[in-house]
């Protein structure tokens, strides 16, 4: 991981580190590279991935419309609302 790659990662994740934080983060990533080398020593040939810790099947509920929250409750979550809609900051000129 070099500084350019870190900058790309920051942009991808919508974060902007200070130069000092970047130095610290580069050291953090260097330590993680060592972790990856340790993991590479473990033989996982012919080992299946284990995504869920318990055997699980996807369960879907009946496709019945529901209205768990009222419009008033939902509008109350927003800093501002107008005419029954959320009011959001202007993002287009």
């Amino acid at each position: 991981m070099d500084r350019d790659a870190l900058l790309g990662l920051e942009r991808l994740n919508q974060l902007a580190l200070t130069p000092e934080e970047q130095d610290e983060m580069l050291a953090f990533f260097a330590a993680r590279e060592t972790d990856w080398e340790s993991l590479a020593q473990v033989d996982t040939a012919n080992v299946e991935r284990m995504v869920h810790v318990r055997p699980m099947v996807n369960v879907l509920r009946e496709d019945v419309p529901a209205q768990p929250f009222s419009r008033e409750d939902l509008l109350a979550q927003a800093p501002e609302s107008m005419d029954g809609y959320w009011q959001v900051p202007r993002v287009l000129q």
Binding site: L15, F29, L39, T44, M50
Partner: peptide
């Protein structure tokens, strides 16, 4: 944690990091 999580899922790292970890979980 966000940046590390993003990096281990990136193309080129996925196999040796995320996928590897799922197999180590089984071991």
């Amino acid at each position: 944690a966000i940046l590390y999580g993003s990096e281990v899922l990136a193309t080129g790292n996925y196999e040796r990091c995320y996928d590897k970890s799922l197999r180590i979980r089984r071991l």
